[in-house]
């Protein structure tokens, strides 16, 4: 396995972990929080709301803006 393949495999592992955790959370909401519920919880304060939306805006800036 080359370094490039290993790096990409790392990203895919994190993605697979996220999908697996989300599926588990949807199937057993009494045990695990879904990603949506975590965001809702974090965004209950002004800092959390603004922080999450800044992270979202940063994505757009990072990929498109000067």
């Amino acid at each position: 396995m080359t370094s490039r393949e290993l790096t990409i495999a790392g990203y895919l592992a994190v993605l697979a972990g996220s999908v697996a955790l989300q599926i588990a959370a949807v199937r057993r909401p009494e045990r695990l929080p879904s990603l949506g519920h975590v965001f809702t919880h974090v965004m209950r304060t002004r800092t959390g709301r603004v922080g999450v939306l800044v992270a979202w805006a940063w994505l757009g800036l990072h990929f498109f803006a000067k």
Binding site: V52, L53, A57, G60, F64
Partner: peptide
Amino acid sequence: VTIAVVALGCLMVAIAW
């Protein structure tokens, strides 16, 4: 594209505030 993305980002952060 910079202006369009910055404007939308600022609007959404203002809504979040």
